[in-house]
Design a protein around this nucleic acid. Structure first.
Length: 260
DNA sequence: ATGTCACGCTGGGCGTGA
């Protein structure tokens, strides 16, 4: 199974790049975050034109997650929302079973600042994710993939000194992400690329991508029922393409898995 | 720290969020 996780920063603005991704990688499932679209405006027809369809959980202007699969695969047991999440209306969690694997597309709140109410919500979201994933991992093969808005280790940001007093690197966030690994989930990138950088996000401003000022905040966490064969961050999608279509500020994480 | 995007609302620039 080829699984991709990608925060697209608006599926309508990114449609040419999403189609490009599907045509180049022909994935079995794509976990998409930040669709930033209302359900009635989701671009289903454009995906159908290249042989894919989406199950979506949409908020409207912000957030929004989706699972995109090729026409020949079914998505069973679709469940939108995370039990116990702080604000179910934000549309940050979507589950479906594809090829016998329970797959989650997750968009963890950013948190804004460590003293902001949204930071408390971020921690509560991660706690709710732990409870739900504990159930899912016990039940069978599970992958949760998405934008966690947490850098696990100091080496997962370009310069840890620049993050004094910032979110994404605090012990409260990192311990909660490590709690997910302790459920029996494997950080797919680290499992097969133990010494590589693996940044998945670069700020649009200040030439951050060109200057290597990135963070590894997008993950595929894979239960031990499955084997990870290869993982790539496809940084071509962080640049304009030949047609001048703009990139997301995140690059897609491409994961090759064995299925049971 | 901030040099950019994308959204809605509205009809071109502002407020919000990342």
């Amino acid at each position: 199974m080829r699984l991709i996780s990608w925060n697209v920063n608006s599926i309508r603005a990114r449609l040419p790049r999403v189609v490009e991704l599907l045509e180049q990688h022909r994935p079995d499932v794509v976990c998409i975050q930040e669709t930033k679209v209302a359900a009635e405006a989701f671009p289903h027809e454009a995906l159908a034109a290249v042989g894919y369809r989406a199950v979506e959980h949409s908020e409207g202007r912000w957030n929004g997650v989706a699972l995109v699969v090729p026409d020949h695969l079914e998505v069973a047991g679709i469940q939108a929302g995370l039990p116990g999440e702080p604000d179910p209306a934000e549309a940050r969690w979507l589950e479906g079973t594809v090829g016998g694997v329970r797959i989650v597309s997750a968009y963890v709140p950013n948190g804004r600042e460590p003293d902001h109410p949204m930071f408390v919500a971020k921690l509560r979201f991660l706690d709710a994710a732990r409870h739900r994933l504990d159930e899912l991992v016990a039940a069978g093969p599970t992958v949760v993939a998405g934008d966690f808005n947490v850098a696990l280790e100091d080496r997962d940001v370009w310069d840890i000194a620049a993050f004094a007093g910032a979110t994404h690197v605090t012990p409260d966030e990192r311990s909660r992400l490590m709690d997910l690994l302790d459920l029996g989930l494997v950080d797919a990138f680290r499992a097969v690329r133990p010494d590589d950088e693996g940044f998945t996000w670069w700020d649009y401003r200040m030439g951050a991508f060109r200057r290597g000022m990135g963070m590894r905040i997008d993950y595929a966490l894979v239960s031990r029922h499955l084997d990870v064969h290869a993982v790539e961050v496809d940084t071509r999608f962080r640049r304009n393409n030949a047609e001048g279509d703009k990139p997301s500020d995140h690059a897609p994480l491409v994961v090759e898995l064995s299925t049971p």
